[in-house]
Design a binder for these strands. Structure first.
Lengths: 318, 318
DNA sequence: TTGAAAGCGCTAACAG
DNA sequence: CTGTTAGCGCTTTCAA
């Protein structure tokens, strides 16, 4: 009835009735039922955001980026966590899609067959984020992790390091770390360098984990002269380990992380790292969805590749 | 019809038809419409989680705690971010409530009048988390930040520090930091000690911010012998600053943070801190909501106060 | 400018 | 065990 028109401020309501309605609804503490609204209008102002984890600092920042732009729109993000498990991704996706969101932002390009099918048939804008090494279902925005690995390899080789070790998360889980590893390996191979050692771990990433991994590798392969970590937090742990043990950084051993975590900016020496453009990825992804719902036009199939900035810091010789 | 029964595995369906339905729905890629379902059943398996921020490590951990228990239930968390702004909280809350969630978990005990009213009239279980210094609307689970401040003050006084400075977030925003500050101040007063200096900041907390604040305070008040920070990240920055500048910790200056962030476990020396029980708070809060929706019984009005564990680490004399 | 009526796609209660 | 029917609280369309 008229009430509905007032509350959604659709025109064609006289000032008098409008005020009457507003007053009454305030007095009754009326909160509209979006469920009924959504059902009737076939429109839901929700965007599903599906990410692997919330506890490693990178996804909270992506979320911040998404929220930033969605706050200037009627859209609201709803997050689902997959814990890097494809079955979980499938479940969460199914759950989310059954709410008929206006769009979905999902991390990664690798999905189970069922997940792909759901995404393809959802009939809403899909943005796959973080990674651009592969074919998106619809749009994608991210960086090339392969290229990130390659660039880092070039920098390491240029600095003259020869015995390089990789320390990172267990591979089957984290496709992006894997791609960086592959990029690194391939690019080093071109320089005639083979990975001297590697160590994979599972579980949370903290300074302590970084220390442990570093100690393990350095004890096992004392001749290693460069440590490439899959994230900044364990790299920072490694750095602290080296400092504590009188290892000259970057002279004796060079170090690099990944992500460009702002939190760690105050480290001394400054860690070599590569900014993964997390917030920007969130911004762009949200913008794509927002545009689609605003004008209803087709903004699908966008491919936005951002360029991670390499920061050599003080832990990589020049 | 029967399809609905199969998909919700309500009994009373023969094996034969059940399989037929399942097969058909899979082939058609059928995803049920929860909106319609929710409207019809007057039940929505969503729990609204309203928190101030996602970028400071504490709330992601609370979220993890919440997800952990909700994963074993039909419930799904939906997060809203307030950026520590009451108006934003009001907006987000209104938005969330209009989806008629099964419960709400909201950070803090301080809310605008409008927010309180909404919460009180929502007719669903409300759990206010993080803080127990005050009166909850319904249930609450958290720690007493006031007491945390008091305990830290006692420890500091016991260690013989006399010139204590507080470094933390700007007050009007963060009630919990304020309560710790007040607890600290009051307890120190009892020992005849007055806060020697304080410095408030706004914006993100990182190592760099910790360094800057610490430098500022130490230059301004060179006689300060203890620095109490409102979070571990800036405390860690302060610690690095002291180490870099040849300040003896904890001899010349003692340091303590707050939160007990696992990420920082590998710091050397180990930071004195207090575990804020973030994950456990998430667990308990989610459990309350889950119980309510499971048995429909009244589990309201619970008050769960957890005890933060003090860890003196190596940056507080003993 | 306002009111009335017809669904949106499901669930719940009941009848077969 | 299975089919039918009547809403859930809105939006939309159409008539007044």
């Amino acid at each position: 009835m008229t009430v509905s028109r007032v509350l959604r401020n659709r025109g064609d309501v006289s000032q008098a009735t409008r005020e009457r309605v507003l007053e009454a609804s305030k007095k009754l503490g009326y909160v509209p039922n979006k469920i009924a609204g959504a059902l009737a209008s076939q429109r839901v102002n929700l965007v599903a955001v599906i990410i692997p984890s919330m506890s490693n600092m990178v996804f909270p920042e992506v979320m911040t980026g998404i929220s930033e732009v969605l706050e200037n729109s009627p859209l609201q993000p709803v997050v689902g966590i997959t814990h890097y498990r494809p079955e979980q991704e499938e479940r969460v996706l199914y759950e989310m899609l059954s709410w008929r969101p206006s769009g979905v932002i999902i991390a990664g390009l690798e999905h189970s067959e069922a997940s792909r099918a759901m995404l393809e048939n959802a009939g809403i804008p899909i943005v796959e984020i973080m990674d651009t090494d592969g074919e998106p279902i619809d749009s994608m925005v991210g960086i090339s992790h392969r290229r990130a690995g390659i660039e880092m390899a070039k920098e390491i080789a240029k600095a003259g390091y020869k015995r390089i070790a990789f320390l990172g998360t267990k591979m089957p889980l984290d496709h992006r770390a894997r791609k960086r590893f592959e990029g690194l390996t391939d690019a080093l191979a071109k320089e005639g360098i083979e990975i001297a050692d590697h160590e994979f771990y599972s579980g949370g990433s903290g300074l302590l984990k970084g220390r442990e991994l570093t100690e393990m590798v350095l004890k096992r392969s004392p001749d290693v002269d460069f440590l490439y970590y899959s994230n900044d937090m364990i790299a920072a742990g490694g750095l602290l380990y080296c400092l504590d043990n009188g290892i000259d950084v970057p002279g004796q051993v060079g170090l690099a992380g990944f992500n460009g975590i702002e939190l760690l900016d105050g480290l001394n020496p400054r860690l070599a790292t590569m900014d993964a453009c997390r917030r920007e990825i969130g911004n762009k992804a949200a913008e794509i969805i927002a545009k689609c719902t605003e004008d209803g036009a087709d903004h699908s199939g966008q491919r936005i590749e951002l360029s991670p900035r390499l920061d050599v810091g003080d832990t990589l010789k020049r």
